[in-house]
């Protein structure tokens, strides 16, 4: 039952980023702990959430550029990390993140194809309006939202199903030396996010003075 609940929740969270509302339930710092709570391990969720939030802190959805999807990564990584072994626990969390992040990029590519496809609705709507079918505006919107949610949910479902089998298997192949240093490295990761945050908050100023009335 759990994978289904996580996928559906994940689908809802992911669509918040672009399609619906933008109330930021898509941010890792929110969706990580919530997924963790659902699975009964909020601490792991919050660790994943915070690390991901920091890494993605300066990623801005710019105009028509689609940033790598942090929500997909945070949700799936939390699900997989919760099941991790007790020994070198943080090492497993980091390991899962490193494997899942490329999937976030893959999801981004899918999203771009989807957004290309969406112009279909514009053209269809034009025809429908000519026929006086005003209801199609609502219909198109709701259908599109459903596609956004479903797409993300299915992607997360497949990802966690695959990851569930693959990650422990791959991790088992690593030597204990590597596991130990992965475990230690986990605590270095926030520095990447914090460094990124510093760079976003520092601006270069124009030398010519600006005059405001």
């Amino acid at each position: 039952m759990n994978p289904l609940i996580v996928s559906i929740l994940g689908g809802l969270f992911v669509s918040d980023a672009t399609a619906v509302a933008q109330i930021m339930v898509s941010r890792p710092i929110f969706c990580g702990p919530v997924i963790g709570l659902v699975l009964g391990d909020i601490f792991t969720g919050i660790l994943v959430g915070i690390v991901m939030e920091l890494l993605w802190i300066s990623v801005v959805p710019l105009g028509n550029a689609v940033p790598p999807d942090s929500t997909v990564v945070a949700v799936s990584a939390t699900y997989l990390a919760v099941q991790g072994p007790e020994e070198y626990r943080y090492g497993y969390i980091l390991f899962v993140l490193l494997i899942i992040i490329p999937a976030g990029i893959l999801f981004k590519k899918m999203d771009m194809i989807h957004r290309d496809f969406n112009s279909f609705f514009s053209h269809r709507l034009e025809d429908q309006l000519n026929e006086g079918n005003i209801g199609f505006i609502d219909k198109a919107t709701y259908i599109s939202v459903s596609i956004f949610v479903l797409k993300a949910a299915v992607f997360i479902f497949l990802l966690i199903m695959l990851g569930e089998n693959l990650c422990p298997c791959l991790y088992g192949m690593l030597g204990s030396g590597i596991k130990k240093s992965l475990h230690e490295s986990f605590f270095m990761i926030p520095s990447v996010g914090l460094g990124t945050a510093i760079s976003t908050f520092i601006f270069k100023k124009s030398q010519t003075k600006k005059d405001f009335q």
């Binding site: 672009t18 399609a19 619906v20 957004r115 514009s122 919107t141 939202v145």
Partner: peptide, 14 residues
Amino acid sequence: LLQAVWSYERMQNI
């Protein structure tokens, strides 16, 4: 739901 049907061609028109 402003961005529900976001497309590259006309973005938030719908």
